[in-house]
Nucleic acid binder design. Structure first.
Lengths: 368, 368
DNA sequence: CGCATTACCTAATGCGCATTAACGAGTAAT
DNA sequence: ATTACTCGTTAATGCGCATTAGGTAATGCG
């Protein structure tokens, strides 16, 4: 393995790619402090104190001073390559981040993420779904860019299962935001729709309602399924009939949910309606419209509830009974879980409780 | 530089950190394809075609096959280390980033930043003012953390001049969001308040107003100065008197701007009032309140305009005439400028045009 | 006073990839 | 046949950092 002693050429890197050469390396710090690069590494990583590796206070000070005066910052790529960590947490979003309607869900989440990340000593790397930067080509291995960070959060329903699976299989710390069973061993955090929905139904029952109807769309996402389950659980808990006629499922609520139909239900004894929350809020909109058109007074003659938050454009209307997804809390919890994963913790799923919202659309049922 | 031939120890890395060892390296691909690692790198990066470095089709195919069958994905950390750049753009905010009131200005900006960054092939690193991650201590050299990125955007008025100066002096690519003259050679992007303000005045003049008054706070930030200049320019352009009595400056508009004073101005012939925009919106609030209290009908008896966007809590009132800062555009422009800086471009300042907003608070002056 | 500690520090090495001088094999030109 | 190239591929090297076996004073012990 001896090197050729002869005067071979020296390939390697070109001297200086012109750009900025200002960023100081550990070597410069070492030179300035009059020590070796290894010592600089030891001091700056604090590994000396932690592992009982003795470094004299004088040397420490010299190194620290030199590093500070040079404005030294470790190169994250190098740290990472050297099998350490870089205090960077990735955030990869699959949803279109930009349309205005997402503003209301993505940002609050980010607030929580940022706060908790800061608390844990991490900075954030925002990976953009459409970005083609970095190594792999745009579409295919785009997800691999995240490996630069110590771990990564994934947002949005459309995370490609196979790529995620690969990451998980390689034991790269990943946390998905939103319940997800797909890749085995994937950690996730999600809102507890089941409990929150149950609570809404319980509140309605507590007000005296005996017949409650759920209006939901024709979608089998976990978010929908969970809400229905919670709804039915709530009915059962309150001793109310939870048959299949307690749920009205429609692929197009705007057309199927007519005023006539609402009147018919009311005639049958239904006094409260519950709508699931979706991206578009179609079920809720249809319900409101139908009730209005049927000439029914909302808190007076029928009670309404929404299993989630109202769409942004209806924010100025009186708040419906329902619950709010604690997005900042969700973000914070995701970060906590991710940090735990990075530290070697298990890949578990975590539910975060939603906040019940009494609202102004529910009251006692009308006297018979 | 000859290596010690003697049987020295071999320190280096521990054999295998247990965890993820499954990921194939270029070396494995090379072995499977029966070529060298260098060839794999050349083929996979496509650098052979680009730089005219010829690689036989046969070899290419062998390498590609091997890579595919092994599920090879490049390690971004290694790529970035070897390439001396990391395709990371920093975003450092000095304002409290996440408190609710900033929500409305920070996020739209970030939208533009992210979009343009993605387009340019960069990912984003969000540095948090309070985060203590990384090497340097928290408070003092916190700004140095940003050096981990290829360049950095700075938001907020309170960027410490000396630290910024240091970065600029080291030729670290920096772009400040908001006009700024402080550190010589600092690149910045800002909204063109001068033109936008002038446009508002011109619109008012076009409606027939001959006496227009600017209400501003007692602050000499560029943002305020620019607005005043644009205001005065607009008056001059329209052949209106632009004396010092066209501007009312107050350290505390809430107390100084009374209904009586407004009545007096109106009696003197003032038919339109313009308020500058500030963080708190104090001038605009005071103006609205005083006009209301004076019992003046807004579009009818006096016209009002705001040099900027109304504060978030007044978003539901009728939109005032004025202009909107195109925050996404500003963000995008900032990224473009930063990318140019990284590529070795000059440190220039750039203005982005604001969008005129007709609003509903201005009309023709009342007949005399 | 000689040898074993102890306290501090440094040399050497590799992580995975990109880069480039150089080399071997053809092929064309002299 | 020797030189002059072109083509295709490889060996060697380093990016910046972390890691660890030693080395070298300074100190302890009998």
């Amino acid at each position: 393995m001896a090197k050729e002693a002869a005067g071979r050429a020296r390939p390697g890197r070109a001297p200086a790619p012109a750009g900025r050469r200002a960023r100081p390396r550990q070597a410069e710090v070492a030179r300035l402090a009059g020590v070796s690069q290894a010592t600089v590494s030891l001091v700056l990583s604090g590994r000396d104190l932690a592992t009982g590796r003795p470094i004299s206070a004088e040397t420490r000070a010299k190194v620290l001073d030199a590093a500070h005066s040079l404005g030294y910052v470790p190169d994250p790529a190098a740290s990472r390559l050297a099998a350490a960590r870089n205090n960077l947490l990735g955030v990869f979003s699959f949803t279109a981040t930009f349309p205005t309607d997402v503003r209301h869900s993505y940002y609050p989440f980010l607030v929580g993420v940022e706060q908790e990340a800061a608390a844990q000593g991490y900075d954030l790397v925002l990976f953009t779904g459409s970005s083609t930067g970095g190594a792999g080509a745009g579409g295919a291995g785009a997800l691999n860019r995240v490996r630069l960070a110590d771990g990564c959060l994934f947002l949005g329903r459309h995370a490609p299962a196979d790529e995620l699976r690969r990451l998980v299989a390689d034991d790269f710390p990943v946390v998905h935001v939103g319940r997800r069973d797909e890749p085995e061993g994937l950690a996730w955090v999600g809102a507890d729709y089941v409990s929150a929905s149950r609570e809404v139904v319980t509140a309605l029952a507590g007000l005296g309602h005996r017949r409650v109807l759920l209006v939901r769309e024709d979608d089998d996402a976990p978010a929908s399924t969970d809400r229905e389950r919670g709804f039915l659980d709530g009915l059962v808990d309150s001793g109310l009939p939870a048959g299949s006629d307690a749920v009205f499922r429609s692929g197009d609520p705007r057309h199927d949910l007519t005023a006539d139909r609402v009147r018919a239900w009311v005639a049958e004894g239904v006094t409260a309606f519950v709508a699931e929350e979706t991206d578009t809020g179609a079920a809720w909109r249809a319900l409101r419209a139908a009730v209005d058109e049927a000439g029914l007074d909302c808190p007076g003659q029928v009670s309404l509830a929404l299993l989630g938050s109202p769409p942004a454009d209806l924010a100025d209307e009186p708040a419906p009974m329902g619950f709010d997804i604690p997005r900042p809390a969700l973000g914070a919890e995701a970060v906590r879980l991710l940090a735990a994963r990075i530290a070697g913790g298990p890949a578990e799923g975590t539910l975060v409780a939603c906040a019940f919202r009494p609202g102004a659309t529910a009251g006692p049922p009308p006297a018979p």
